[in-house]
Structure formats: structure tokens, C-alpha cells
Design a protein around this nucleic acid. Structure first.
Length: 519
RNA sequence: GCCCUUGUAGUUAAAUGGAUAUAACUGCGGACUUCUAAGCCGUUAUUCUAGGUUCGAUUCCUAGCGAGGGCACCA
């Protein structure tokens, strides 16, 4: 349809002997103005100096005379826009295909391989609210990738061996002995916190903790290695259970340990070509024009830093999965670190830079004292979900645990996905976490309502029939086919909130129609 | 000090350089006794400041002010 209109406009320009200008053809913000609008007369007027309205009238007249198939109405409006309203049958034909379960998929990245890394957990640290932001955005991007015609693969990057973990294991060994078997995440989290504190306070244990770390890095058979293995397994299971509740699963993992080894190797191989030695460390100094900061990749002790690990991670991603696009989701705070890493990576393999997409999410802050005092400190995902699910139940005591959990997840995810990724979320359960109006539960409610109508109709022996259109549904019909376009835009920009905004508009339109009278 | 992000109704957000800046929450008012009222209808209110580019700026550029983050061996 778009093509036909564009061709029609070009034809009009030629035959009216007007200059061939670049013009736009887009949906007006308001459906009241039609299905498409063009600014062609504004652009022509700019060149010829004729009055814009005069040009618009001429072009519109010519377009009407062309009698383009599928167009109901062509009008000149506002400061000189030409609006096009399509015939209803165009939309109804589109709705026929909408019954296909595959409907809604696009071909934006057809045939491509897309790797999405998100939710990366820390061993020994429970899944907290920051991970929730990451998971929500990451899962949304993965699903966008999956419906774009690409082969999408979700992976995660768990940290495993580190000095921090060695500290925690020291505590576990001391407290429970070498036969320790983890039973809940809190024990590990507490050991981590305690270990960090003890390490700073008590110098006498530092040598032993470093030895533990060395033994872990070397996979050396030892009590700490035994405990570490068990804890790693337990952590991964805990992680998988937690993200499963949120609707995510992963194809595979790349561990921080292996990325560190790979990264260190790469840095050494590319020194002094890309990296330089400085004060005993190996650093990357970006060109001044790039306005990036110098970063240490291998510290003076010879260990890879976060930067080298991320470099190794990039290498492993591209060699193992060979993606055309590699997406990573991190916190905003890491944006500049990541820019440096990618810049350095580009010097080693330009594809790593060219094909990497970095999306960062904001932080969640807590204004609602109720929520933060109830949970204390950095809230864990399970606790937040539980607290919200409880609120859901207060509103409706008849709900099952499963249903109230689903609603709680929807409410939280919606509050994250409705805004542009990258913005901080003010997590105030009283305002941002709403169950009414623009909210996850509103969308769920609408979907259930629509589903219930179809179900009732089915029981009455009525099947959806689009051959005999009813009145009052015209706007809905015009809106529904736009879903595909909206998904396409969201995929191109990696912006899930486009979809959310659209779904709200659609739900509002549906509920408005539903409330108008009995069906 | 330098760099990045950001500033929209009382609040939370939306708006590929386009028309009268769009929704929701809150407040006030209303309909129905009907398919799920977590719904529907009505109503008040907004682009940080000063310049610039443009036919047209919330959007792009410059400066200022406010908020958040980053800037060498943590991740």
C-alpha cells in the first residue's frame, strides 16, 4: 500500500511538472487524520516558493484522479499535509492473515544469527532487583530477535572464580567444614558478605584466601575445589529456577573464568600492537579524539581485569556462535567501560565492534518506603515478587497463587518496559507499580476479556467471521495490522517500549469499544 | 576538571523534525444494573532557561542551570 501511494505521488509530481523532492509518507499521530500522510507539498513549496496549500490541492487532485486501488479518501489538511484514508477491506484482508499463529513475525533480520546475552548472575550472590531490570530488558530483546526472522540464541555470562568467591569459600570451610553442601542461597550470600568483611579486617587470613583462589583457578583437587564445585552447581540451578519464573531460559553459558583466560591471551598477543605497558600493567589508550578513558586490561599482578574478561567474552561469543549481531545488556554504569572494550576489540577484529550492540538499562530506585523497609537493603527478586503478589491478592482474594504471581510479574515488567531502555525506574509501588490504567494487569485484563468473548462465542457455535463487518470496530481494524510495523520498528531500534506503547493504545481502543454496548 | 546520560501536566511516562504535545495516576463529575467494574464516559493541567538552524523544534546545534553515572589495576 505504501509503495502504491509513493509511486502515485511521484507520478503526480512528474505530470504536474513539479520538482522531484524527497518526501515522507507516514502514519499521522492521530487516526482521525487518516492512515497515511505526506509532507510532499511542504517540500515542493520550499523549492518553488509557491503556496503550500496550492501545491497540496493540485497534487491531491491529481492523486484522486489516479484512482489508486484501496484508497477511500484523499484530503488536504492542516498546514498542507495530504492525508490518505484506506478502504476498510484493506484492513479486513489483513485480519484474515492475523489468524495465523505465525502472524506478527517480521523479516527485519531474516536469515541472521542473533546472540543475546543478559541476566548474567554472580555466583554466591542472590538474584536481586538489578538483575530483574537486566532480565526484563534482555528477555524482551531476545523475544524481539526471535520474532524478526532471525535465529536468536539467549546466553548468560555467570561469574564463577574470583577473589570474592575465594573469600566466601574460606568462610564456608571455617564454619561448616569441607563436607558443606549448600541448601539455600542465603547461606552463600551471607558467606560472601562476611568473607569480604573479614578479608579487609584480618590480614592474617589473606594469604590463605589467595591460596584458595589460586587453587580454584588451577582446578586443583582440594577441599575448596570440592565446595566450589558444589556451590557452582547449586547457584546455576538457583539461577535457572529464578529466571524460569520470569519466563526466561538460556541456551548456554560462557563463564567469567574462561573469558578471563581468553581475554588475557588476546591482550598479550596484541601487545604492543593494541595495548601498551604502563606502570607494570597492560592498558589500552584510546585515541584522544574518541574521548574515551584509558583502561587497565591486565593488572600489575598479571591478572585480567573486567575489561580483559569482556574482551575474551566477545572473542568467545563470535568464535562459538558466529552471530551476525551480538547484543549485550548491562547497567548504565558500565556504558563507558564497555565503549572502551569495544573500541579495543575493534582493533583486533573489526567485526566484533561492528556487530556488537550494547543496550544499557537504568537503575531501579525506591521511593516507596513501604516496600524497601519491608524487604530491607537491596531487595531480592523473589521477595519483591512475593510482596507484589500479596498486594494483588489483597485486591482479589479469589485468585490462585499462580495467577497472582503472573499479575505481579506483569505489573513489574510493564513498569520497566514501558519506558525507553536506559532510563532509571522509580520503583514506587504506590505509583509506578499500578494495577490500573497504563499497567501490565490492564493489558492482561484486556486480553482475558477478549479471549473470554471468543470463548463464549465458540460455546454458542459462533465463529469469528470477517465477511460481514460490524459497525464500531473500524478503528480497531485499522490498528491491529500495525502490530507488525511496530514490532519491526522495535526490532530495528532494539526498543521494546514501542511495542508496549502500541499495545496500550490497542487495549484502550478495544475496551472503549467493548464498553459501548452489549455484543 | 573532562566525558556520557538526562530534564515534558501535581505524579509516572509517550511523541522516525510535522497538524490542537499524547496517555495513565490523583482530584471532581457521570453512565450501566449487561458479555470479567483491575473496565467505560466527561473534566482541569505540561515541553528547565537563553540563543541558533528550519516552512515547521519536546526532538537537531551552542551556552547556562538542575539530576544521575563514569574517569588506571573492583565488577
Amino acid at each position: 500500500m505504501e509503495m502504491a501511494i509513493q509511486e502515485g505521488i511521484k507520478k503526480a509530481l512528474r505530470e504536474l511538472e513539479l520538482p522531484e523532492v524527497a518526501f515522507t509518507l507516514e502514519h499521522p499521530k492521530d487516526l482521525f487524520h487518516g492512515d497515511y500522510m505526506t509532507n510532499v507539498s511542504l517540500m515542493v513549496g520550499k523549492q518553488t516558493g509557491e503556496t503550500v496549500l496550492g501545491i497540496a490541492e493540485k497534487v491531491a487532485k491529481h492523486l484522486i484522479a489516479q484512482n489508486i486501488e484501496g484508497i477511500e479518501k484523499i484530503e488536504v489538511a492542516g498546514p498542507g499535509f495530504i492525508n490518505f484514508t484506506l478502504k476498510r477491506e484493506i484492513f479486513i484482508n489483513e485480519l484474515v492473515t492475523a489468524q495465523d499463529p505465525e502472524w506478527g513475525n517480521t523479516e527485519v533480520y531474516k536469515g541472521k544469527k542473533i546472540l543475546v546475552e543478559h541476566s548474567s548472575p554472580n555466583l554466591f550472590k542472590p538474584f536481586h532487583i538489578g538483575h530483574l531490570m537486566n532480565n526484563t530488558v534482555g528477555e524482551a530483546l531476545y523475544r524481539l530477535a526471535k520474532s524478526s526472522g532471525a535465529k536468536a540464541t539467549p546466553i548468560s555470562f555467570p561469574s564463577d572464580i574470583s577473589l570474592g568467591v575465594a573469600k566466601a569459600i574460606f568462610i564456608l570451610l571455617e564454619k561448616y567444614g569441607e563436607d558443606f553442601t549448600p541448601e539455600n542461597i542465603a547461606v552463600l550470600g551471607d558467606a560472601y558478605v562476611e568473607g569480604t568483611k573479614r578479608f579487609d579486617e584480618d590480614e592474617s587470613i589473606q594469604a590463605r584466601i589467595k591460596e584458595i583462589a589460586d587453587n580454584l583457578y588451577a582446578s586443583k583437587e582440594s577441599p575448596e575445589w570440592k565446595i566450589f564445585q558444589k556451590c557452582k552447581k547449586f547457584n546455576i540451578e538457583y539461577f535457572e529456577q529464578t529466571v524460569a519464573k520470569l519466563g526466561s531460559e538460556f541456551d548456554s553459558y560462557i563463564y567469567e573464568g574462561e573469558a578471563g583466560i581468553e581475554g588475557k591471551k588476546l591482550v598479550l598477543e596484541n601487545t604492543p600492537k593494541v595495548f601498551t605497558e604502563s606502570e607494570g600493567a597492560i592498558v589500552y589508550v584510546p585515541e584522544e579524539s574518541k574521548k574515551l578513558h584509558t583502561a587497565v586490561f591486565i593488572n600489575s599482578q598479571g591478572n585480567p581485569t573486567y575489561e580483559a574478561k569482556d574482551l575474551g567474552l566477545l572473542d568467545l561469543k563470535f568464535t562459538r556462535y558466529q552471530p551476525d549481531i551480538s547484543i549485550i545488556i548491562t547497567d548504565n554504569q558500565q556504558a563507558s567501560h564497555f565503549q572502551v572494550v569495544v573500541d579495543a576489540a575493534g582493533k583486533i577484529n573489526p567485526d566484533w565492534q561492528k556487530n556488537s550492540v550494547h543496550r544499557s538499562h537504568g537503575r531501579m530506585s525506591f521511593k516507596g518506603q513501604k516496600m524497601s523497609s519491608r524487604l530491607g537493603g537491596v531487595p531480592l527478586v523473589v521477595d519483591v515478587l512475593g510482596a507484589v503478589a500479596e498486594e494483588v491478592k489483597e485486591k482479589n482474594a479469589d485468585l490462585s497463587d499462580g495467577a497472582s504471581n503472573q499479575i505481579a510479574i506483569a505489573a513489574i515488567k510493564f513498569s520497566i518496559l514501558r519506558t525507553q531502555t536506559g532510563k532509571d525506574i522509580n520503583f514506587d509501588p504506590d505509583t509506578s507499580l499500578s494495577f490500573e490504567g497504563d499497567s501490565g494487569p490492564y493489558l492482561q485484563y484486556t486480553a482475558v476479556r477478549a479471549g473470554s468473548l471468543l470463548e463464549k462465542g465458540k460455546n454458542l457455535g459462533i465463529t469469528p467471521n470477517i465477511d460481514t463487518p460490524v459497525s464500531g470496530t473500524e478503528t480497531l481494524e485499522r490498528l491491529i495490522p500495525r502490530f507488525i510495523e511496530v514490532c519491526g520498528e522495535a526490532q530495528k531500534a532494539w526498543a521494546p517500549h514501542y511495542v508496549v506503547t502500541y499495545l496500550l493504545e490497542l487495549a484502550q481502543e478495544f475496551n472503549s469499544w467493548y464498553g459501548q454496548g452489549k455484543i
